[in-house]
Amino acid sequence: MKNNTTTINTNLKELWVSMGGKEDIAHANCQIMLKKFDDMGIKYKYSEYAGGHSWPVWRHDIFLFSQILFK
């Protein structure tokens, strides 16, 4: 990704990352990944909704992403 930052930012309409808050099992790893994206200059949108890896979080995030996807 580091060598292709311009291509990624140009060709991806939206890089969207969502997380179920600090309760999510992957929260710490996601924060590391987002820091690396920032360091490389990769553009993304981030959404965090408390609740861990659960259906209410999925439902919330699917709704938000559908608004971006079908714009």
Rank of each mutant, 00 (worst) to 15 (best):
N3I: 10
T5N: 01
T6M: 06
I8C: 01
I8T: 06
T10P: 01
T10Q: 11
N11G: 12
K13F: 08
E14N: 15
L15N: 08
L15A: 07
W16I: 12
V17N: 01
S18I: 03
M19L: 14
G20Y: 02
G20R: 01
G21W: 03
G21A: 06
K22M: 12
A26R: 00
H27P: 00
A28G: 07
N29V: 12
C30H: 01
Q31L: 11
I32W: 08
M33T: 15
L34I: 08
L34F: 03
K35A: 11
K36D: 15
F37S: 01
D38F: 12
D38R: 12
D39G: 10
M40C: 12
G41N: 09
G41S: 08
G41F: 08
G41R: 03
G41W: 08
K43V: 10
K45F: 02
K45D: 06
K45M: 08
E48C: 07
A50D: 07
G51H: 03
G52F: 04
G52L: 04
S54A: 12
P56K: 05
V57I: 06
W58H: 06
R59Q: 14
H60P: 01
D61Y: 04
I62P: 00
F63C: 11
L64G: 02
F65T: 04
F65W: 11
F65M: 07
F65D: 00
I68Q: 02
I68G: 00
I68C: 02
F70N: 07
